[in-house]
Nucleic acid binder design. Structure first.
Lengths: 229, 229
DNA sequence: ACAAAAGTGTTTTTTTTACACCCATGA
DNA sequence: TCATGGGTGTAAAAAAAACACTTTTGT
């Protein structure tokens, strides 16, 4: 017999339009209500065991929804973490023993990343999540298990793979080129030249002009674009 | 209880220096000796369940060795396959029922790719492998489970990720630039211009000249290079 | 009229591609 | 001396980077 616990962990990056920052969605896990010291307090990625007959991509969607109520998020599998000791550090045992039959058993986890517009996805804690919040990627605290490593490698993956499919989730259906540029700048943490950025993005042929313009802005209104298809 | 069988599958690509082709390593699985029809005959990737307390990267090495005797292969994890029905097609049940307690149980598999010099890695079947062979990537037959899909996506990954770490396994410690070029041409299935290839590969700074030259060739002997570090 | 972001072209630099001949060796 | 693959530079084309001023709107 060599069956193993398998979980999914979701690294949801949020593009914060107000603070112009990239954030990551973290949950605070419910602790044992009888534990007065709150020693089981844990900040973690939304993640949980997958079910016996569930597709892994489906599991990622379900788990994300069950803990945060986020729905319709495009999730991309990027890496599986399988160190046999990854959940056995002492900091994690307190929580595990309330939620798992055998808290010492290994868990292999499949990592998923996504990138969403923060304002469109208001998470709300549920199930074993006591709280859910967006945390600046520069202020990520010590997390449960190996979740700091999972966040790091998720960010790395995101920056290398930033493309049409991920970015098209992030903007309104109709958006300005400046919004698109800002998105790229925040995610990649790099500045681009306005003219060059426009030339390149238009030449890629993934977006098209609409006839509409911004309304109610106290400057020249920008033309709105949309993604093709 | 939601523990699941987890396996690794190794997609080992072999660079065939004689035929100048890219091949993939497949095993023929042992069938039930009492089954006269040989109906359990299966060609598959080398892969097997991981052990209870084993790191997944270690598992990939162990499994590859246990089935093919290949050793010291640099394996890279690239994707996890988790369709709950992936091992339940009828073509696979015959074999499974001889090797698994419950042949209907799902198995999640973690895919690993590698690229090796065929001549350096002479596989030899062992454990439940009846035979091991290198098969031209254009002649891959119908495989067990979803292994055709795993091979396809492994090839895709390889072509996108071909880099120093993968290629340095493929050549002798000291190699000529023509050997390096040929390797790239075969793996990527593309021709390159000799002068441009040399310029680019030298400018990347990953290789260095040695003072040695080829010996015993009936043409101008080529300078030998080695990878840095 | 002013502030604020939109919009737009040209030049320079860098990178990539195309291309052809002489060289050193073994047979 | 011939056959074989080794080795080299330059020009053209394409892609990327640098750069500054005018326009339209709301206040």
């Amino acid at each position: 017999m060599s069956k193993i616990n398998v979980s999914v962990d979701c690294v949801i990056f949020g593009f914060d339009n107000e603070e112009k920052k990239l954030k990551v969605l973290l949950i605070k896990k419910k602790i044992n209500p009888y534990d007065k010291k709150n020693s089981g307090d844990q900040i973690a990625l939304p993640g949980d065991l997958i079910r016996l007959e569930e597709d892994i991509d489906e599991a990622a969607k379900r788990v994300l929804f069950s803990l945060t109520k986020l729905n319709n998020v495009f999730l991309r599998q990027y890496k599986t973490f399988g160190d046999p000791k990854r959940v056995q550090s002492s900091k994690d045992q307190e929580w595990l023993k309330n939620f798992r039959q055998d808290p010492n058993e290994r868990v292999i986890t499949i990592g998923y990343v996504s990138l969403v517009r923060m304002e469109d996805y208001i998470p709300s804690p549920s199930y074993f999540a006591d709280d859910v919040k967006w945390v600046d990627i520069l202020d990520v605290p010590l997390l449960a298990f190996d979740h700091n490593e999972i966040v790091e490698s998720g960010l790395h993956f995101l920056r290398n793979e930033l493309d049409h499919k991920l970015t098209s989730e992030l903007l309104p259906i109709k958006f300005t080129l400046s919004q698109l540029q800002e998105l790229h700048e925040i995610v990649l943490d790099q500045k681009f030249d306005k003219r060059n950025f426009r030339k390149k993005v238009i030449s890629k042929g993934k977006i098209k002009e609409t006839n509409e313009k911004q309304k109610g802005v106290s400057h020249k209104p920008a033309r709105l674009y949309s993604f093709k298809n």
